[in-house]
Design a protein around this nucleic acid. Structure first.
Lengths: 236, 236
DNA sequence: CGGACAACTTAACACAGGTTGGCGCGCGTT
DNA sequence: AACGCGCGCCAACCTGTGTTAAGTTGTCCG
């Protein structure tokens, strides 16, 4: 009854009770807990099943040979870690838990069966894939052409929207359980500079970040500061 | 007989003559020419058909409200511009020709028919989608965590490999028909700094770039300089 | 052949963001 | 209670890259 993937999808497509039951069933089996800072999938691993995040935050990251880490995606509850798992490809990056994480393991066969029984499931997976790709593009644009403060503002807008869709936003307040070094690796900067930028967003009255909770004081202002155009996420 | 998409796919999957004929047929109809600096699809447009690049280079780009441009992908001969076209989504970016470009327009119906007749076509499309996604991730890591010279070296390695796959590399020499401002927008830098970095790559004997032709003098050295690990493109 | 315009190239200067280092707090461990 | 340690926070300094501007080359077209 509490599947974040279903909550997300219901915003976009009309799900019948059987669709919901099918999607729910996928996420009930093989539930696993992963400690913070632990890998869910290692770099160059060859996953035979997909993971759906039920709780906690994870990230897709690449480690450069000299230790630099680039986080290329943030994975929130309701997100699918390995949308291509059924193709049995060797992945070129790792998936790591940023906080303690609860995931459901889903086998390719289960996905195949679900799609055959309920065509709407395929529709949902396509939407998921599209949204992920759109976010990738937006991140490239961000890291490439936005300034430090624009990047951070943009990310906060994105996360606010994504968390809202799975019912994890309490009004303008959303959980933000990641460390500043994590944010730095996601935005292509240093934790020191993240700290500076955060302070600037705070003193200009746009956000407050305390105790792993982000409160957006002025959403319009934040969106403007981050040149945020929400259409890329909506897919409607 | 000269379809770059087929040339690319044959590296990875075994195509029968009918597969080849089907893929070839897709690219024979509705061939269109687009001038350099012209859009193939505008930002926020709603493409009803996919485009396959037959000749020339294009890019996927986002324009920020104040005019900054971020190139989020380079599209080479054999690349598909709108792999999601059959989903009828409104795209969040534009596709522009960097050089004069020849494209084949493909309708969703044609793709559907082709997949139904020849299952291998679907396999090919999946591979294409996977490769594109892997490149996206690599670009995020590049812009986020690689230095200017590493980024440029990495891009040259990537392009060399991608162009080789469609038979457009003459040994260590590949066409490089884009301007330095274009490279700058793709790598998140300024054309001035691209110029500096290019000079550095030249003086260290790694590449020469003359008359829209890039020659790689020392591929191993270039790969090392760019922290380039080719596995992400192979998908085998 | 010559003019126009875009792209390339270089130099001087400016600044955003990186680096280093230090302090304090909160929390888990013993 | 004491310790360790990762994280938040801040300041001083440094550097890679951006900015501006100007001269040079290349290329297209009349």
């Amino acid at each position: 009854m509490d599947n974040p993937f279903v909550r997300k999808m219901e915003r976009h497509v009309r799900l019948g009770p059987e669709d919901r039951a099918t999607l729910d069933g996928l996420a009930r089996q093989h539930v696993r807990h992963v400690a913070a800072r632990q890998d869910i999938e290692g770099q160059h691993s060859n996953p035979y099943h997909a993971h759906l995040i039920l709780d906690g935050w994870a990230c897709r990251y690449k480690q450069l040979p000299d230790g630099r880490r680039a986080i290329v995606a943030l994975l929130l509850p309701g997100d699918l870690c390995d949308p291509f798992a059924f193709r049995r490809v060797r992945i070129d990056h790792a998936i790591g838990a940023l906080t303690p994480v609860t995931v459901a393991r889903i086998t390719p066969d289960q996905i195949g069966d679900a799609i055959r029984d309920r065509p709407m499931v395929e529709e949902c997976l396509w939407r998921e894939l599209l949204a992920t790709t759109a976010i990738h593009r937006e991140w490239i644009a961000s890291v490439g052409r936005r300034s430090a403060i624009e990047r951070l503002a943009h990310l906060f807008c994105e996360l606010h929207l994504r968390l809202s869709r799975v019912g994890l936003a309490d009004g303008a307040t959303v959980p933000m359980p990641v460390t500043q070094p994590d944010l730095a690796d996601a935005l292509g900067q240093t934790s020191v500079h993240i700290n500076r930028t955060l302070k600037e967003l705070r003193t200009s009255g746009l956000v407050t970040l305390r105790g792993r909770l982000l409160t957006i004081r002025d959403l319009d202002g934040l969106m403007e500061r981050g040149l945020f155009d929400p259409t890329y996420l909506q897919l409607a």
